[in-house]
């Protein structure tokens, strides 16, 4: 199993990341998720700034991936999260999971995203035409994380 965790300012190449995972003959499924900067309801988003806690971020992401690997039968996993200044429609995050079969890859990708959103120390600040504000954490994200606490 190869785990790649990257926290970076630069954009990433989805196609290249997918190619890296599909090279292995043992895995019949690759699931990828990409999160993008989207428009804020009723406001015009001018920029998004992403802050993180260097060191802790990478450790938390690695822990989440290892928890997923303990729960599902996984091949390789790549998690890339960008930090710094982003604009509308830019890529923020990539989670890519390969596995022998699709169910493990689908579920593990969702598990990793759900915990990334509630455990990894990233914070978003939005600059809109009405000023700057820090994005508030959502209850719906906490609930998404909690659904995995029920044992399979």
């Amino acid at each position: 199993m190869t785990i790649r965790i990257r926290v970076q300012n630069d954009d990433f190449d989805m196609a290249a990341e997918y190619e890296r995972l599909r090279r292995n003959d043992s895995y019949g499924a690759v699931v990828t998720f990409t999160g993008l900067v989207r428009e804020v309801q009723g406001d015009h988003l001018q920029a998004m700034h992403l802050e993180h806690y260097p060191g802790m971020t990478e450790n938390v992401l690695m822990t989440i991936v290892k928890q997923a690997d303990a729960r599902w039968n996984l091949g390789d996993v790549t998690v890339i999260h960008r930090v710094g200044s982003l604009t509308l429609n830019e890529q923020i995050v990539l989670v890519a999971v390969s596995s022998a079969h699709r169910v493990d890859a689908f579920e593990a990708a969702q598990f990793i995203m759900d915990f990334l959103k509630t455990k990894a120390p990233f914070w978003k600040k939005e600059a809109t035409t009405r000023g700057e504000h820090w994005v508030e954490a959502k209850d719906s994200d906490d609930k998404a994380g909690q659904r995995w606490s029920v044992n399979k």
């Binding site: 938390v60 999260h81 959103k117 455990k119 120390p121 990233f122 978003k124 954490a137």
Partner: peptide
């Protein structure tokens, strides 16, 4: 490591305080 506020803090520890996270 994320800990509850009841956790012990010892000499030389690095503590971080922050709002709920909003990545992804």
């Amino acid at each position: 490591q994320l800990v509850p506020l009841s956790a012990e803090v010892n000499e030389g520890d690095e503590v971080a305080l922050f709002p709920p996270v909003t990545g992804g």
